[in-house]
């Protein structure tokens, strides 16, 4: 009994630890001054990856207020209009959650396509809000570049994690 309990506890720690570690890594990528040229321009979308991934697989991990808080922190760090990323992330999560049942059963390619759609929407919304906030017609090009790059990076961040996640899932229920 004790060993079973230990095992499930370990698994739980593993899963939550993994989720939190991924959040942390993506957060650092979206905030810390890593000396990677032009990282800043693609930053905001890193947290969108985390929100997308965990809202599909483990929605309990990222409740809406947490997403809202992450957005506010991003706004502060990037000097964006206060509340902009919070609005975009909460709206994105709400949309993802409404499509969750559909996305859960899909192939990785479809999930990737879903992310591309969400990232494009978020990018356009960000651009629109910046234009409204500053009353200046910014070029939308950097935003489009950022959407393309982060979409290409999506498998790089998510594939290994989904593999580990699947391994943990199968390990946790050997009978099924």
């Amino acid at each position: 009994m004790a060993s079973v309990w230990n095992e499930s506890l370990l698994r739980m720690i593993g899963r939550w630890g993994l989720a939190l570690a991924m959040l942390l890594v993506l957060f650092v990528f979206s905030a810390a001054p890593l000396e990677i040229a032009r990282l800043g321009e693609i930053r905001p979308v890193f947290m969108l990856m985390a929100v997308y991934y965990w809202t599909i697989l483990r929605p309990a991990l990222l409740p809406a207020p947490a997403v809202f808080a992450i957005g506010l922190v991003l706004d502060l760090l990037s000097a964006a209009p206060f509340g902009m990323n919070a609005l975009i992330l909460v709206l994105a999560q709400w949309l993802i959650r409404s499509q969750r049942k559909f996305l859960l059963g899909q192939s990785f390619l479809m999930i990737w396509a879903g992310f591309a759609a969400i990232a494009t929407g978020a990018g356009l919304m960000q651009w629109g809000l910046f234009v409204m906030f500053n009353l200046t017609l910014f070029s939308a090009k950097p935003m489009l570049v950022s959407v393309v790059i982060s979409t290409l990076l999506f498998p790089l961040f998510v594939w290994p994690l989904s593999a580990v996640h699947k391994a943990l899932m199968t390990h946790s229920s050997p009978t099924s």
């Binding site: 001054p33 321009e41 930053r43 905001p44 760090l77 990037s78 000097a79 960000q126 910014f138």
Partner: peptide, 13 residues
Amino acid sequence: ISDSGGAFVKSAL
């Protein structure tokens, strides 16, 4: 600690 040379705002913390 944070150089968010973002697409629309260039600032650092």
